[in-house]
Each structure stands twice: as C-alpha cells, then as structure tokens.
Amino acid sequence: MAAKTKTPTKKKEPKHPDRDEFDLEEITNTLIEVMDGNQIKIFTIYKRDDQLTGTVTKMDANTKLIHIKDKYMNIHKVHFLDILKISDIDY
C-alpha cells in the first residue's frame, strides 16, 4: 500500500480583517454619529480598490450590514467588519 503524500494547502485569505475590540468600538461609535447626524463621510473598505463616499442610512444588527447611500442615491451594503476607516471629506 502506497503512502499518501500531503499536498500543500494554500493559506486562505481571511474573509474579514483582524482588529482589536477598541478599533471595532471606535468604528461603531463613528457609524452611530454619522447616521444620527446624516453626515457624508469617506469609507475605506476591505478588498475594495476605491473608497466609498456617502451617508449611513441603516445599520442592520441581524446581518451586520451597514447601508451606505452614495451621491448617486445607490445603496451599498457593506459588512461591518469590512469597514477599515471612516474619514471626513476634504473640500
């Protein structure tokens, strides 16, 4: 009986980036402020080349999706853990 050789497994890229509890709490607080104040912000999102500019219209606790409306009135549903940074708009 021939011995099976293990094939090297590819290291899977994580679905969401790893961050500590402090970072997640800070993002949560910023999202709440942005939604309550109807503010336009720039969102840096994991695995997305371009940044998303818009306002937070809804935060769904069940699906952990953040609904962001851009200037063209399109709604982008972004997973909470994929939001890397929220910044102000520079005019």
Rank of each mutant, 00 (worst) to 15 (best):
I45W: 01
T28N: 14
K41I: 01
D18Q: 13
K6P: 03
K47S: 07
Y46I: 00
I42C: 04
F80T: 00
D18A: 13
D18K: 15
N62D: 13
K4A: 08
P17K: 02
L24N: 09
I42Q: 07
V56P: 03
H76T: 03
I83H: 01
D49W: 04
A3M: 10
D49F: 04
T7G: 06
K85L: 05
D50Y: 08
K10S: 13
I68K: 01
T7Q: 13
Y72P: 07
K77Y: 04
M59R: 14
M73Y: 12
F22Q: 13
L81N: 10
A3R: 11
D90I: 10
N29A: 07
I40E: 15
Y91P: 15
R19E: 10
H79G: 00
I75M: 02
Y91Q: 15
D90F: 07
I45N: 02
M35V: 10
N38S: 12
K77R: 11
S87K: 09
D18C: 05
L31S: 06
E33G: 09
V34F: 09
Y46T: 00
D23T: 08
H76G: 04
S87C: 05
L52C: 04
M35T: 08
T57W: 04
V78I: 14
K15W: 06
K77S: 09
T44M: 02
